[in-house]
């Protein structure tokens, strides 16, 4: 008899998820950070060049399932909500594998007036309080890691140099062969193949400016332009992704436009700019924000190697 209808998640993991959600809510309640709920189905998508929106046909328009609650939460921030958090499902088309699920649970929070360093400390506290034996994660710059594992400064290396390193390590780069800007793709490939697998309990900061997304940029100590972002890594897996949030309207528009330009070149759908989100981002107070994958945190807590072991029913069953 088929048992395909059954969840593959163990009862212990179900209980652990419930405890984790309770601990997270306690953590934010103690800090007077307000829990909010925003719709998962909206009228605008994200233009990130490498995130695939899942669309839903509505009677008179196209709906978008959120890829993160970011835009809606920034509209609340601009309206004066103060510090807020949300636990919400997020959807990303095509992202499915051992560490990815098309639908997953995101914990996202925003802290007006906090510094990026203070937010990193807060993420660490949350990890300490919601798990047993979470190590302290040292802060290391992207450049330092890249120099250690690939031997060059990622902010200055030429396309030819990066390609040479790829060849020296016999890494296949077929999937980038028709890219417009190979430096961006090569950095990603090298970092995800040579660096990320070795990162356990580390906070990476100062990403290349080309990976700024909606983070502010600034100069690092060596004088290179870097993105004011951080990522927490556990077991070679990105767990959380935080930004010093960009709030300059012209720059926001220019980033959205360049995303859409890449989409156009690649032949993927161009996403209309979410005007309400752009205006909100330029009106919100200076703030930092972070998104954390709760399923991945649960993987770490229960020692699961595959994300499907912590999510009750994957999209295909």
């Amino acid at each position: 008899m088929s048992t395909d209808w059954l969840s593959v998640v163990s009862h212990e993991t179900l209980v652990r998820r419930a405890t984790l959600l309770r601990d997270v809510r306690d953590f934010f309640a103690e800090r007077n950070i307000l829990e909010v709920t925003t719709p998962t189905l909206g009228s605008a998508g994200v233009s990130d060049a490498h995130i695939e929106n899942i669309t839903v046909p509505l009677p008179n328009s196209t709906g978008y399932l959120q890829t993160s609650p970011e835009y809606a939460m920034k509209r609340l921030l601009a309206g004066g909500s103060g510090a807020i958090y949300q636990i919400a499902p997020a959807y990303r088309g095509g992202e499915s594998g051992r560490r990815h699920s098309i639908e997953f649970t995101m914990l996202e929070w925003y802290r007006p007036g906090l510094s990026l360093l203070a937010l990193i400390a807060e993420v660490q506290q949350l990890l300490d309080e919601s798990t047993d034996g979470m190590p302290q994660c040292p802060i290391v710059s992207y450049r330092q890691l890249f120099e250690e594992h690939c031997g060059v400064n990622p902010h200055q290396a030429s396309v030819a140099t990066l390609f040479q390193i790829i060849q020296d390590h016999a890494i296949n780069a077929d999937h980038l062969s028709d890219e417009q800007d190979n430096a961006v793709g090569y950095l990603d490939l090298l970092f995800s193949v040579l660096v990320e697998p070795k990162l356990d309990a580390v906070v990476v900061t100062e990403f290349p400016a080309c990976q700024a997304a909606l983070a502010k940029t600034g100069l690092d100590t060596a004088g290179d332009m870097v993105a004011q972002r951080f990522e927490f890594f556990l077991d070679g897996l990105e767990l959380a992704n935080g930004y010093d949030e960009l709030d300059e309207e012209a720059e926001i528009r220019s980033r959205f436009a360049s995303n859409n330009k890449i989409r156009q070149q690649r032949g993927t759908e161009v996403i209309p700019i979410d005007e309400r989100a752009v205006i909100a981002m330029s009106k919100m107070p200076p703030c930092v924000g972070v998104a954390l994958g709760l399923d991945r945190l649960l993987m770490r807590i229960v020692g699961a190697r595959d994300i499907s072991k912590v999510i009750n029913f994957s999209t295909d069953r």
């Binding site: 499915s96 560490r99 999937h175 793709g185 990603d188 490939l189 193949v193 990403f207 990976q211």
Partner: peptide, 15 residues
């Protein structure tokens, strides 16, 4: 072996 890789801000690929 098949591994889906999605660099933080980059193009997804399968190794």
């Amino acid at each position: 072996e098949n591994e889906f890789v999605k660099p933080g801000k980059g193009q997804a690929f399968n190794r």
